[in-house]
Design a binder for these strands. Sequence first.
RNA 1: UGGGGUGUCGCCAAGUUGGUAAGGCACAAGGUUUUGAUCCUUGCAUGCGGGGGUUCGAGUCCCUCCACCCCAGCCA
Length: 557
Amino acid sequence: MSFESERYPSNFISNIIESDLKAGKHGGRVATRFPPEPNGFLHIGHAKAICLNFGLARDYQGTTNLRFDDTNPLKENAEFMNTMREDISWLGFQWSQETKASDYFEQLFEFALDLIGKDKAYVDSLSAEDIRTYRGTLTEPGVNSPYRDRSVEENLQLFQDMRAGVFPDGAHVLRLKIDMAAANINMRDPAIYRIRHAEHHQTGNQWCIYPLYDYTHCISDALEGITHSLCDIGFEDHRPLYDWVLDQLQLPVHPQQIEFSRLNLKYTVMSKRKMKQLVEQQLVEGWDDPRLPTLAGLRRRGYAPAAIRDFCRRIGVAKSENNVELALLESCLRENLEGNAPRAMAVLDPLKVIITNLPEDQAETLRVANHPKNAAMGERSVPFTRELYIERADFRLEANRKYKRLVLGGEVRLRGGYVIRADEVRMDDQGEISELHCSYDAQTLGVNPPGRKVRGVIHWVSSSNAGAVIFRRFEPLFSVAYPDSGDSKYTDLMNPDSLTELSGFLENWLLETPAGSQYQFERVGYFTRDSKERADKVPVFNEVVGLRDSWAKINTE
RNA sequence: UGGGGUGUCGCCAAGUUGGUAAGGCACAAGGUUUUGAUCCUUGCAUGCGGGGGUUCGAGUCCCUCCACCCCAGCCA
């Protein structure tokens, strides 16, 4: 994919950037940042933000920092920082600088002192509950804390003592002095520092007071010279606070916060909290379960980074609520895989076939193209032998004209090989078809038989090179489009068929294939070797996405 | 009953100063095809939440309704 083709289509943020550039704002500089809190796994919703921040910066020759927003030591740890770096790199982006909010703790403290000195912040000694009560409600104004008028000197002393560890958790809090009657609740003297005698994964026990998001984020942005600070639409009514803080302080730049709506994907959940529950209640295998929209899960599922980037570009950027269909994601995947994935054959639900007119000791080696349109992908050898496997669904005792596969007495072509005719069916004790006896037409390799039309082509695997594996096919994790809404608990709405395991065969050279490289199993879908090994060592192949299947539509009509 | 947002095709989403509704996905119908895949062609909003108004002309301006989303963490 070329650089230019990944460029973002016109959107309200690129419009802002362009008019800023035109106006010479920030000296024509564009600087963004991606600021995850290291408290969980990144998912495809984050991918939207990552692609936007890095993509827009790239489109305008700007820079993007990776900043860990680590102001809450109780919820965060350094492990998550590692997986986040891996996920972002895997997605295909390189950050200009890696920073942490904790890098700025000392400066943040100094700025707080400055605010106290300007009588713009004060130490409040109300309990958490009282603060909530004093805050008022959505429709009623709040009332001033009795501690709001402490002297600058007293505030300074108290705040220094807070840092010094004189007080227990919750004893005091540093608040901005704005307006308790503000219609915007965020402006009713928000807390900006709390006491937490907790060890921080970066700063150890250096601090026992930690700054809060609203205070930290804007200053961190400004300190880094960020020009456009993109964030979730949920922060829209925090913007006045973002601007207020920066307006009080001497900082090199005043970044513009721009909010865009988060990604919602149908048939799945996008919140870290809910995914965490699925993992903890073992409703999925783990954070990298291929059914989860985490980047780790998508990677294990076999999604290519370029396909995810393409998806993020195609969903666009706006401020309206959105619920993107899975079909769009799948379309991006197929488009990416169609040209890149070498073809192979695999039989997921095998039915044994005996080619009765082929002697047991005869093995012919067929040469089959690895891609129908790209000769550069070469070809491979596929043995054609007396015993082989075809897909159970590719044979019927009888069927109507719409069915283009094998029926008793009918003909079909083996992909890359000969035309065969089904002569006889063997049943087992349960009345299940256990074996098919067929004969092949030796005159049909590479040519159509004279006078007859063979309508169908089916895939197959010779038992002489059949590797036994487990195929995993996936369906959406939830059986309803909006598991988050409605009366039912989302865990009750999980799709019982989200995972199907099948035991079958594939061309055995695929056994040597590494996790993460995708192949198209012809007529079935795209698959990749699973990165996790099973206890019984049986290889597992995950389905990335199925092929479009117009027969399935006809068949269910 | 406060504040902040959003409403353009089934799902996303363009639509710079008003000039006569992009594109993608999905869907439908044909064609090609040793993958019922791919590919190709064609179709798919007299209308932009509703109603008024301004204008020669409005998705774009004004008025007015309506619907939906977010906000009362010492989380981010």
